[in-house]
């Protein structure tokens, strides 16, 4: 059957191996060690220190514990988080 042919095996290796190699290189270089930093990279500075009216007291507290004390919202605050 065609699926057993050398051509298919070679083709799969040619297509599949490079990304695997690059993935290994990436892992070795520690590219995936601080993934959570990437998830925080979208926030602007101070963005996480503004008042958000839907949060409960404890939710706000844990946020401020991580990111610093509350700042007063600028008047154009809607621009950041609406």
């Amino acid at each position: 059957m065609f699926a057993d042919s050398i051509a298919i095996i070679a083709l799969s290796l040619i297509i599949g191996l490079p990304p695997l190699i690059f993935l290994l290189i990436g892992v070795r270089h520690g590219y995936f060690d601080h993934v959570d930093e990437a998830s925080r990279s979208i926030f602007e500075e101070n963005e996480l220190r503004y008042h958000r009216p839907w949060e409960s007291q404890s939710q706000m507290q844990s946020r401020l514990d991580h990111h610093g004390p509350l700042l007063s919202n600028p008047t154009t605050e809607w621009e950041r988080w609406l």
């Binding site: 059957m1 065609f2 699926a3 298919i8 083709l11 799969s12 297509i15 599949g16 490079p18 990304p19 690059f22 993935l23 290189i25 990436g26 270089h29 590219y31």
Partner: peptide
């Protein structure tokens, strides 16, 4: 390397599907 993982990986997945669902059936 990050970009290479992304582009090569992305191409590999879609090429794999192309082989299984388009190229192989065409030959058979």
């Amino acid at each position: 390397t990050r970009l290479l993982v992304l582009i090569m990986g992305a191409l590999a997945t879609v090429m794999f599907a192309l082989i299984v669902l388009v190229i192989m059936p065409r030959t058979m």
